[in-house]
Deep mutational scan, measured.
Amino acid sequence: MGFKLLSKLLVYLTASIMAIASPLAFSVDSSGEYPTVSEIPVGEVRLYQIADGVWSHIATQSFDGAVYPSNGLIVRDGDELLLIDTAWGAKNTAALLAEIEKQIGLPVTRAVSTHFHDDRVGGVDVLRAAGVATYASPSTRRLAEVEGNEIPTHSLEGLSSSGDAVRFGPVELFYPGAAHSTDNLIVYVPSASVLYGGCAIYELSRTSAGNVADADLAEWPTSIERIQQHYPEAQFVIPGHGLPGGLDLLKHTTNVVKAHTNRSVVE
């Protein structure tokens, strides 16, 4: 069995187990497998329904001669939608809004960016022009300005110390501490036991640490421990890039980060 097929099978099995364990909360999309990078042309966006009122959005972007996937989250909030992270750029984010209108038909009224990198804030200006209120932590807003990236308009308070959590509509926002970046936030959907790890969490097929220019490698494993301790009931975990899975993604990420750190020390 090929690795790609095995990865998709694991996603399907995880979703099936969740649907059985929580039949009222989960209505997993039966329309197909989780979209992969090879299936999404740059400039297009796919939506994948995880649970009743919960979707991931998947886009792709060219970077350094390669094409990478990027995940975000959409959560229903009454007759409105909360968006977590842009679709990595203005063109993708405009396509995301169009796809949401086509498939869901509810307005996106608020959006949260989970850290300051372009795959999370690139497209904020498109959201703002569409009347979406954009939010991020003060740290993310400051770092985005320093980096020359787009800056969300509103500040999220109460997320300055490791372990801080605040309720934001249908989700809980959690600051686990520094990891992929010093400002990275985690998003949890309690009604569906869905954990969105953003770039602080890796997919299972990833074996290298990737972009760690703004990471705190020493603190990252401790931050992941905080996530595990705060959300032990999480059933569906979405990484910032690639295929979702279960809580095993947290341990896998820790292993990859520690291996990278150990290699760096040896070198």
Rank of each mutant, 00 (worst) to 15 (best):
G2D: 15
L9S: 11
V11H: 15
V11Q: 12
T14P: 09
S16P: 10
S16N: 04
S16I: 15
A19W: 14
A19N: 12
A21P: 04
F26W: 06
S27K: 06
V37Q: 13
S38K: 08
S38L: 11
I40N: 05
P41L: 04
V42S: 07
V42R: 13
G43T: 05
Y48L: 10
Q49H: 07
I50H: 15
G53P: 14
V54R: 01
S56M: 15
Q61E: 05
S62G: 07
D64S: 12
V67M: 10
V67A: 07
D77N: 02
D77W: 13
G78C: 08
E80R: 09
L82G: 05
L83D: 14
L83C: 12
D85R: 00
A87V: 02
W88G: 14
G89V: 05
A90W: 11
N92Y: 15
A94W: 11
A95V: 11
L97F: 03
E99I: 07
E99Y: 03
E99F: 15
K102P: 15
L106S: 10
P107K: 12
P107S: 08
R110F: 02
V112E: 01
S113I: 15
H115I: 00
F116Q: 03
D118Q: 12
R120K: 09
V121W: 01
G122M: 14
V124H: 09
V126S: 08
V126C: 04
R128I: 09
R128N: 14
R128T: 11
A130L: 15
G131C: 13
A133F: 13
A136Y: 01
S139R: 09
L143P: 02
E145Q: 04
E145A: 14
V146E: 08
N149I: 05
E150V: 06
T153E: 15
H154E: 12
E157H: 11
S161D: 09
G163N: 04
A165H: 04
R167I: 06
P170C: 04
V171A: 08
E172M: 14
L173M: 09
L173Q: 01
P176L: 07
G177R: 00
I186A: 12
Y188L: 05
V189R: 01
Y196G: 09
G198Y: 15
C199Q: 00
C199S: 00
C199F: 00
C199E: 00
I201E: 00
E203M: 11
L204R: 06
S208L: 10
S208A: 08
V212E: 10
D214H: 07
E219F: 15
W220P: 02
W220D: 02
S223M: 04
Q228K: 15
Q235M: 03
H241V: 01
P244H: 14
G246V: 08
L247T: 05
L250A: 08
K251S: 03
H252C: 07
T253N: 00
N255Y: 15
V256I: 13
K258D: 10
A259F: 11
R263D: 08
S264Y: 02
S264R: 13
S264E: 03
